[in-house]
Amino acid sequence: MRRFSFNFLRFNFKIFLLIVLLLSFTGGLALARHLHPLAARTSRAASIQAASTVQAVDRDDPVPHLLFNALTAGGARLETMGLEAWGSLNSTFMDGEAIQDLAGRAATALGLEGITSFTRQDDAGFHALFWEGELQPGVVLYFSLQSLAGAGEGGETYLLINLEGQPKQGEGEMLAWQEKVREAFRPWQVEPHLIYNLTGVIPGKLTPAEREQRARAVLAALAAEKVEGVEDEELLSISAYTPRLPRSLEVAGRPVNANVALRYHATDDNTYLHLGSPLLGGEY
């Protein structure tokens, strides 16, 4: 299972993750060739803010239903799922004591009333509190509140939440996660940006033609058109756009809101189908 990495946040948060996003489109996929499908992936929250145009989203978000249907269309058995949420709580650089108070309020909204101790990091122009633990059996929650000073500006304070685990109820459980993270942002009247990821298993190794057929079945279920792709002996990754998904990113002047990837792993003789919206990123 992946681990959410926060150490890079002492640097320029938005610029660093913009670089990560651009690298993921040009060469990042190839770097993950020999990694396990559940390896750690870098958070994409601020990279999306820095390099995308995000459309308005209704409260009745259709994304989970569409993604679960598409994973089924690809012939994969659901193994893990993840939901990342992020949002700016205010345009202010806050001191350590102030974010301690905010972190407590957010933790309570997440149902973590008993959490009083956070991992803390304080640097010049940066304060952060982190917490990691099981929300329920088999489901891990990563939680971070960060405040960054701006160059000539007031700064900004972010809340980031990452849920990942092996689902028992599939789509219904994802909807429950979605409501839980929205509740955490509600005290600040912030609608969080949501990033969805599903991982399914297909036994054995697929031929290139079979791999292509599975990817096309996923895109057809989403009524999505391919924007660009990466392919080698073990990996096929396609980014696409569909008007059925309400949030999209503008990358190099082209909208993208779905990403499907299939990778074979000889260690367990399985092919893993990864499906994300608006994007998959990092290593998979």
Rank of each mutant, 00 (worst) to 15 (best):
P255E: 01
D269P: 03
S239L: 05
V256W: 10
D269G: 04
H265I: 00
A266N: 08
R254W: 03
V260C: 07
G253Y: 07
L249G: 07
S237T: 06
S237L: 06
S239Y: 06
V251A: 12
S248E: 10
P246Y: 02
S248V: 02
P246E: 03
R254G: 04
Y264F: 15
R247D: 14
V251I: 15
Y264R: 07
V260N: 09
P246R: 00
N257A: 06
R254A: 12
S248N: 09
L236R: 13
A240N: 06
S237N: 11
P255H: 01
P246H: 00
P246Q: 01
H265Y: 03
A261M: 10
P246F: 01
G253K: 04
A258N: 02
D268E: 15
Y241K: 01
D268I: 09
R247Q: 11
A266R: 13
A266M: 08
R263V: 00
I238N: 12
N270P: 03
P243G: 02
R263K: 10
Y241P: 07
N259S: 14
A240K: 02
N259I: 03
T267A: 10
A266W: 09
H265A: 01
A252D: 12
A261S: 14
Y264W: 15
S237I: 00
E250I: 01
N257M: 06
P255N: 02
L245G: 06
V251E: 09
P243F: 00
D269W: 03
N259D: 15
A261P: 02
T242H: 03
T242Q: 05
D268A: 14
H265R: 06
T242M: 05
E250N: 09
